[in-house]
Design a protein around this nucleic acid. Sequence first.
DNA 1: ATTTAAATGCAACATTGTTGCGTTATTAAA
DNA 2: TTTAATAACGCAACAATGTTGCATTTAAAT
Lengths: 138, 138
Amino acid sequence: MNVETKFIELLRDRNLKATPKRLELLTVVAAFNSAIPYSELQKKLKHFDRVTLYRTLHALLDGGIIHKASVSSDEVYYAMCKEYCTSECHNHKHVHFKCVECLEVSCVNTTNTIQIQIPNVQIQQVDVEVSGVCSKCM
Amino acid sequence: MNVETKFIELLRDRNLKATPKRLELLTVVAAFNSAIPYSELQKKLKHFDRVTLYRTLHALLDGGIIHKASVSSDEVYYAMCKEYCTSECHNHKHVHFKCVECLEVSCVNTTNTIQIQIPNVQIQQVDVEVSGVCSKCM
DNA sequence: ATTTAAATGCAACATTGTTGCGTTATTAAA
DNA sequence: TTTAATAACGCAACAATGTTGCATTTAAAT
């Protein structure tokens, strides 16, 4: 099964129409080697109306097809969801790593499990954002 | 030593003038029982010019006097730095917890240390953002 | 008290978020 | 294959925040 067919299935499974714009956005996000910055999406999808990009991103986020990764609260990055995610729950087993040199953000599967405990608190989700220097920039 | 004197020392130590606006902002941030949302700052500091609030926050962030806490990438929250932080390095030993019910964000010291290792990567900083239900909302 | 550098307020513009609405396109059903 | 229902899209419009320049005011060192 080719990639496009997989995207169409993914979209229909989430009750989203498989439009050319959505397929194009998904192709761009999936083809990027790391999490793609919003500015990069704008560049690659200049022919998209600003609102269409906004709404398409939201639709895919809500559908659990892509996810956001905003490390150090500057630019927002987007990446494909690897596992099965829904609007209610993003089940990511990875952390987000941002290289302070090349500013590349990637989703990394950590070997060690992150265990957080907070007294008197019912934890639902733990997001870990790591920054440092990647192998290429070292 | 009273709180105001401490703030003045803190500002001068970072080469920032101890102006009434900065002292007022610090008082508001410090008095808030948890991390204060930006919208709350606006409400409590209506008499601040928008740009002044913007620049004052940046000055204090750069000086390592306050820090940002943006959990789940919606509103931005601000809180006092507990340890000695600088513009280059925020040395926080805590995680940020956001209650999905009351939306309160707090800085929590975790008992267990967070250990993250990523192959071929030089980690500089690890930010952990936890969401769930706090004791009050349980 | 004077001076110097920084802080503040105002104006202005950029960027992104957000909604409504008319038009277009997808998809399921006839 | 055509048609009908519904969702997606483009455009306009407005809100909120980010950001900079510049003139004025203020802090704090002399």
